[in-house]
Computed example of a mutant assay.
Amino acid sequence: MSITLQTTATQRFTALDVFRGITVCFMIIVNTPGNGDTSYSPLHHASWHGFTPTDLVFPSFLFAVGNALIFATARFQQLTQAQVLGKIFKRTLLIFLLGYLMYWFPFVHWNETGQLAANPFENTRVFGVLQRIALCYAAASLLIYYTGWKRALLISVAGLFAYWALLFIFGDTGSQYLLEGNAVSKLDVWLLGPNHLYLKQGTPFDPEGLLSTLPAIANVTAGYAAGYFLQQKGRSYETLAKLLIVGCVLLAVAYAWDLVFPINKKLWTSSFVVLTVAIDCILLALLVYVIDFRRSTQWNYFFQVFGKNPLFIYLLSEVLAILLSFFRVNGQSMYGVIYQTVFQPVGDYLGSFLFAVAFMLLCWVAGYILDKRKIYIRV
């Protein structure tokens, strides 16, 4: 395993850095509330069908992965096919492994008697956020490398229709899109067994499972297409207008598709993909307008810190949260002690939100130190 430390910053697209940074920032906030039961409703995922602002965070990160691929594929032209494939598969394996180890970490837990016991391999979750990022990155990179971004986008769109058909064909009659009996759960249980899956309401079901990764590839290829379009056409009002029009058309398509294929983040339905890509196109256009046309840059740097080391800061946030939950003070986790002592006194909901913001700012400080030292960690 190797992590490259770059001591000089490369030429960057400010709006894309800010877009990535906003995504990571809110990813941390929604993942680390002081108390999940008392989080404000917009900071919760939709319980099943439907959509909340929180549901936009992960697909936006995948969209940003697609944006970043533009720079990687530009370097691919200078490499042999073997070198390109080596880079793609090495990065995929590393990100996937980091995600897997994060769920296993810290490899021990407190048992009912207050003693440390090993976390057994047979109960370790295999798929997850970083794992989906790795698989989508690999699929999108290979498609773009071998077919070009236009064909890659068309193939991933075809994947949305294929996924719709798979859920319908292999789901139990009348419950294709319900928690139990859907094709996503069936494949994961058959492939990995229930002990390697996330438990939702006591049912083995992984929202980042293998089959539901198929439609998520389109979030990455769409991010590539949007970023490529901006770079090739230039940052003009005509370019932004076209990006906004695409976003608005996709919004209409998403809600029309929702009538027959419900928007569902946990199943990552095709209508969910179209909806999130639509919103991301609109948000990216607005960011380019504000940053490059209005020259409003005073607030940029805060999010750029996150955007320059996105995967590292996200992984850092998860590891810190795990460690705070693991270490105990008088039999209670440090995570709970800090929340109840410092933040809960101001109110259950406000305290939970302020805890998440404080945790996010702690991660920002780590990113700030790296940026000031011109260190950019590429996983």
Rank of each mutant, 00 (worst) to 15 (best):
F13M: 09
T14C: 04
T14V: 11
F19Q: 08
G34V: 13
N35Y: 12
H45G: 03
W48I: 13
G50P: 00
G50W: 01
F51D: 00
P59I: 11
A64C: 09
A64M: 08
A68N: 01
A68W: 00
L69C: 02
A74H: 10
V84H: 03
F89R: 07
R91K: 14
F105M: 15
W110K: 03
A117L: 12
N119K: 14
P120T: 13
T124D: 05
V126Y: 01
F127V: 03
V129Q: 05
L130S: 07
Q131W: 05
A138Q: 14
A139L: 07
R151H: 08
S156K: 07
L160C: 15
A162V: 15
W164G: 06
W164N: 11
L166G: 10
D172F: 13
Q176R: 11
Q176L: 01
N182G: 09
V184D: 15
L187G: 07
W190I: 14
W190M: 15
G193A: 07
P194Y: 08
H196S: 07
Y198C: 02
T203S: 06
P204I: 13
D206L: 04
G223P: 12
G223E: 14
A226D: 01
G227M: 06
Q231D: 03
Q232Y: 03
K233W: 10
G234D: 08
L240M: 14
A241L: 10
C248V: 10
L259K: 12
N264T: 07
N264F: 07
K266I: 01
L267D: 12
F272T: 08
I279W: 06
A285N: 05
I291G: 04
F293E: 02
R295E: 15
W299A: 14
L315P: 01
L320A: 14
L323T: 15
L324Q: 13
S333M: 12
Y339P: 02
T341F: 09
F343G: 14
Q344F: 11
P345H: 10
G347L: 10
D348N: 08
D348M: 05
D348C: 00
L350C: 04
G351K: 12
F353Q: 02
C363S: 05
W364E: 01
Y368P: 00
I375C: 01
Y376W: 09
Y376E: 07
